[in-house]
Computed example of a mutant assay.
Amino acid sequence: MNHDLISAAETRPPDALARMVVRAATPADAESLIRMRSAYVLSTPLSKEWIRRCAVQLAHRLAPGGDARAFVIDDADGSPVSCALGLIQPVLPAPTYPRGLAARVHMVATRPDLRRRGCARAVVGALLDRLRDEHVTLFELHASDEAAPLYRELGFATSPALMRMTRCAKPTTGTDMARDADVLLESRQGWMPPEQYAETVPKATCFACLYFTDEDDRPLQLHSVYSPAHPWQLVGGTMDAGERPWGTAVRECGEETGLTVSGPPRLLATVYGLPGAEWPYSTVGHVFDGGRLSAEQISSIVLDPYEHDELRVLPLSRWQALMPPRDFARLGAVAEARRTGRAAYFDTWDWGPAE
């Protein structure tokens, strides 16, 4: 049976509303489900911030690979009016749950004007069927006195062994509770809020350069006053916050040479380097074609004395003796990209001495 779309009439009493359809919830339904939980389930409605946090987490957990399953019935305008949400959790296997999978029916909610019309029975029935299809054989829920008869009909039994405790080391503020919820989800789900996840991913500094030659295709480079490791450099530099690579190349060109380039941008090479002892971040760079400069344009260049003290235009082969091997290899890759029209990929611009 396809449980993604199942007629509610198949699972609810004959007197329920006709033409209702039960469907599987998607991440796009997360906020609507949280708002229903806030309005119809919780004794104290959630704040806007808590609704946002819960919706972000639930959307992730409803996505493929997540631990949440939910089914809803929509109103005529497409908004959910009834829902059932279950959360799958691993447990140690036993003869009655050999796959070691359990599920908690975390929430069942129906808009008040549509209660007692079979909606809850329909969405819970679809949820249990889906969970069984995924080899979940242990189910639990917390039932109100009003809802208990329905759950007994569906196969649940009261267990006096179930107990519950909320344990806090100190009174919690809203911020503390939100943080604790994020940590709990991270530990159980392997997911964390975007701001925390951002702290775990590799960081990189970015730069953009322009490759200029004279009219005889001889590369132009500038001599650095601050970097003995990279004495001869292309025109360019590190991106500022909010910049895009081409904008960086244009700005740096104006600052370092006084020249103005108008584009359109033509990418010659992408450069990547791993972090090292000298710098904790990776490096990502873009080298654009600055074009061929006339003798008059080259003679008009005005260097920034705080960055460069000399410019040279030399045949490619002459540059090899003046540059570290890795720097010359990058220059050669860029020159070849200009010659062939195929952009280069140069991924050995690592921090630290070249091997």
Rank of each mutant, 00 (worst) to 15 (best):
Q297K: 07
L322R: 12
R312P: 06
S300T: 07
P315H: 11
V313W: 02
S299A: 15
W319Q: 03
D289T: 08
S294T: 10
R292A: 06
R312G: 11
V313N: 01
S317W: 11
R292C: 09
E296Y: 01
Y306Q: 09
M323S: 09
L322Q: 11
H308M: 08
D289R: 07
V287Y: 09
R312K: 15
S317N: 14
Q297R: 05
S300Y: 12
H308E: 07
S300N: 15
A295K: 09
M323W: 05
H286S: 00
L316K: 08
E307S: 06
R326E: 04
Q320N: 15
P305N: 11
I298C: 04
F288Q: 01
S300M: 12
L293Q: 05
G291R: 07
G291E: 05
V287F: 06
F288T: 00
V313E: 06
V287A: 03
G290Y: 01
R326T: 07
I301G: 00
A295P: 10
I298K: 08
L311A: 13
G291Y: 05
W319T: 01
P305Q: 12
P315D: 13
M323I: 08
G290T: 01
L322F: 13
L314H: 08
L303C: 10
E296A: 12
L311N: 02
A295I: 06
Q320V: 12
R292P: 01
P315V: 12
E296L: 09
H286L: 02
S294Q: 10
M323P: 06
I301S: 04
R326I: 11
P315K: 12
R312Q: 14
H308F: 12
A295Q: 09
D309G: 14
Q297I: 02
F288L: 03
R292V: 03
G290F: 02
H286C: 01
S300F: 07
S294L: 04
L293K: 01
Q320E: 13
R312I: 07
I298H: 07
E307D: 05
R318D: 15
P324A: 05
Q320C: 15
L293H: 04
P324R: 00
Y306M: 10
E307Q: 07
P325V: 09
P325D: 10
S317V: 14
P325I: 03
R312T: 11
G290H: 01
Q320K: 14
G290W: 02
L303E: 04
G290R: 02
